[in-house]
Design a protein around this nucleic acid. Sequence first.
DNA 1: TTATATAAATAAAACGTTTTATTTCTTTTA
DNA 2: TAAAAGAAATAAAACGTTTTATTTATATAA
Lengths: 323, 323
Amino acid sequence: MEKITIKDVAKHANISASTVSQYLNGRYNYMSEATRQRIEESIKLLGYHPNYMARNLKNRTTKTIGIIVSNILHHFAVTLTREIENYCDRDGYNLIICNADDDPDKEQKYIDGLLEKQVDGLIIMPTTENTMLYQQLEKRGFPVVFVDRNISTVGIPSFKLDNHQAIEQAISYLSEKNVRMYQYVGVSDAMNLTPRVERMEAFNSIIGEEVEKKTITAPTNDLYDTIVAEFDIVRGCGVVIANDFALMTFLKYVDTHNIDLVEDIHIVSIDDIPLAEVYRPNISTIAQPIKDIAEAAYTTVMNKAEGSEYTRPEHFAGKLIRR
Amino acid sequence: MEKITIKDVAKHANISASTVSQYLNGRYNYMSEATRQRIEESIKLLGYHPNYMARNLKNRTTKTIGIIVSNILHHFAVTLTREIENYCDRDGYNLIICNADDDPDKEQKYIDGLLEKQVDGLIIMPTTENTMLYQQLEKRGFPVVFVDRNISTVGIPSFKLDNHQAIEQAISYLSEKNVRMYQYVGVSDAMNLTPRVERMEAFNSIIGEEVEKKTITAPTNDLYDTIVAEFDIVRGCGVVIANDFALMTFLKYVDTHNIDLVEDIHIVSIDDIPLAEVYRPNISTIAQPIKDIAEAAYTTVMNKAEGSEYTRPEHFAGKLIRR
DNA sequence: TTATATAAATAAAACGTTTTATTTCTTTTA
DNA sequence: TAAAAGAAATAAAACGTTTTATTTATATAA
C-alpha cells in the first residue's frame, strides 16, 4: 500500500509541493495555466488522493460530524439519521454513528472519542446523566445540539416533537369516535427522558377530571406483561400509544388476546411506522416532524461550526395521519 | 475553543513532550513513577485529549471504518449496521455510515472520500458498476469486504445469505400446506443485484416443471401496480416474497384487495421484520443470518487491516420462522 | 534603459503527535 | 574510585499537508 503524497505529485509535475497545494485548494491564479494542467494530469496519473488527516492538522476541520442515538433500530432514530446523512452528503460531510443505548458511560465514552477525532460537530439524543459533560461542551463553545430530548440545566438547543400538541391531537382524534374512557400505554419514565415525561404529563393534563382515564407504563422489558395485567378491555375505549415500541408491544397483546381494533377499542400511536399503513385495520398515527428536526439540528450544528449563530424553533408539530 | 496540546501537558508537568507521548502510549518504564503520576494529574487537570488526526499522521491508523449501504432504512441494512457498530464499540473503533442509494456515482464518491479520510477498512453493499474501483482496492490490498451482494469479477469476499437454500426453505414450508401453485413477488433485478438474481433463479429452478408457477417483479416504484395487474388470486396458492420491501408492498395489496391470508393464500417472506410477529395473521419468514454476516464481515476487515489473513465461510443459512 | 508592478513559483515554518538516537543522571560492578 | 551498565529524560526528525513570506522571472510604465 504505497502512499502517494503531494510530494510525489510535485516531483512528477516538476513543480513544488506548495504549488500543488495551491492547486488542491483551487487557488489557480497562483500558477500558470500550463503548470495547472500538468498538475492535473499528474494527480490523475498517479491516482493521488490528499490525506485528510494531514490536511486537518492545519485546517482544524475534519468534515465529519457525529451522531449519538439511543438505538438506531428505532424508527425515529434511523429515519432521522437517514435525513441527516442526506444533508451531510450534500455538503461533503461524513457522519459517524454511535449507539449509546441510553447508557451514560457509553455516551461519555463516545463523546470523548469523537472529540479526540476532532469531529466538527455533534448531534446527540442525550441521556440525563452527563450534564457536567454537556455543560463543558457548551462552555467550550463546541457545536452541539440535542434531538428528541432536552436537558433543562444546559443551554444546548434541543429539536423535537411538540409532545403536548401531539398528545392533544391524539386525544382529539379519539374523541371524535365518542370514546368514553382513555388509556395511555408507554414505556415508563424512570430515566426521566423528555418524550416519556412530556407525553404522559400531556395525557394527564389534557383529559379532564370528569373523564375516566388510566395510564399503563413499564420498563421496556416488562411492558407486555404489564399491559396484560393492567389494560382494561372496555368497549369503546380510546388508547393513546406513546411510541413505536409501545405500539408493537400493544399489537402483540392485541394479537394474543384477540382484541378487535374496529369494534372493541380505538387506538392512535405516536411514530408513523410503515406497519401502520399495512396493518389491518390501518392504524392512525401522529407522524413525527422528522424532516424538520433533521434540518434544524443539522443546520444549527453547521452554523455553530462556522461561528455564525442561527436560531430555529425548537419544537415542531406532529402530523395526525388518519387511517 | 483553546486547544490543549501535548505541549501544554508537558509544560504543566515540567517534563518534555516526548515523555508525555510515551505515557500516552503506555510505555511507563520510560519514566519514573513520580513523573508518571505528575503527567497523569496534569492531563486530568487540563482536560487534555490527544488529537487523533495528528496521531494518525505517524500511526497510519484512524480507528475508524466505513460502511456503505444502499439504504439504511431497510431492515437488513440497519440491523447489520447495528451489529457492526457493536463490534466497533467493543474494539474502540468508530463507524462512518454512508447511504449510496444504489447509485454508482454516489458510491464512488463515498469510497474516495472515506479513503481520503484514511479509514482503516470498508464494508460495502456494492452496486454492480464500480468494478474498476473495487479491483483497484483489491490490488492495493486495502481491507474491504462486501455484504449481501457479490461481484464475481473481483476477489473481494462477500458475506451473505445462502439465497438458494433460503428459497428452498420457503418453498418447502409452503409445500407443507399443500399449495397447488406458486407465485414469486419481488423487486426486479434490472441492476443485477445478487439477492434479487439468486432468489429468483432459485425459485425457478427449485419448483419443477410439473407445478404451476409465476414470477411477479417490477422496479421499486412500480411493484404495487404490477402486483395489482399480475397477481393471480388463486385459492390455495403459495407466495414467496423476496424481501421486506416486497412484503410491505404485498401487504398493502392484500389490504386494499381484501385477501384473506388464512383462507385464500399462504405467504412466506425473506427478512424477519418485526411486523411479522404482530401482523394478523402472523407471517412466517426466513430470518437472515445477520449476526453471522456482521461477525464475518467485521472480523475479516479487521484481520485484513492487521495484515493477517482470515477465512470465513461466505454464505450463511437463513432460518425459517414458522408462525 | 531603469524602476515598478505583476505573475509564477518556492522555501520554510507550522499543525500535534510519535519515534529514534542521544544525552544526562544514577546505580552497579570490578 | 573508575568504568560500565541502566534508568530517566530529551532533542530532533518525521508524518503530509497549508500558509506566509520570499524569491525569481516577466511585463509594464516612466
